[in-house]
Nucleic acid binder design. Structure first.
Lengths: 78, 78
DNA sequence: CCTCTGTGTCAAGTTAACCTTACATAATCC
DNA sequence: GGATTATGTAAGGTTAACTTGACACAGAGG
């Protein structure tokens, strides 16, 4: 999924490894998310967006992203 | 993780099964999230919050929840 | 040249989010 | 009493998020 991780991380002068330490995952996990190898869990997404004082939707760009698997899009209600 | 799923779902007059169809997962998956058996994936959280015209943070209550596993809390930066 | 840092990627293992199938319960309706 | 609907739960399987360890490469500096 597209995201602003690299941009926001560099704006704080953080390395992938440092960001990983801040949110409690390995540097490979941060790298894989930045390079769109896999999607973060919801808690990891939350922890990351907190580091950047942002909301999940501000950091992870759902609208602009294709989903890899799982079913149809949300159909809404109203 | 604590969430307002049941409350919001019932306010729309949806069953667990119907909500599951709307977002493309089984009714058991919806039930498991409502009863806090497991956490949704980030895409499922997004699809669900879209049904309720809300943000992820409005539907899933991170601040009030304990995390089950994975590492330390976010430490922030600034 | 060698070393150190930061990044990208691969392999193999663990864990948890999802699946289907199935059974139990309570409410409703015929 | 029997059928239907909505919910809760459990077993067993698949998949992907994450781990550690390792290797490659570019840039900076001794």
């Amino acid at each position: 999924m597209k995201n602003r991780l690299k941009e926001l991380r560099e704006s704080l002068g953080l390395t992938q490894e440092h960001l990983g330490e801040l949110v409690g995952v390995s540097r490979q996990a941060i790298n894989a998310i930045e390079t769109e190898k896999f999607e973060p869990s919801i808690w990891l997404a939350y922890d990351i967006c907190k580091v950047f004082n942002s909301s999940i939707e501000e950091v992870f760009l759902f609208e602009e992203s294709e989903r890899k698997s799982r079913a149809q899009q949300s159909k809404g209600v109203g």
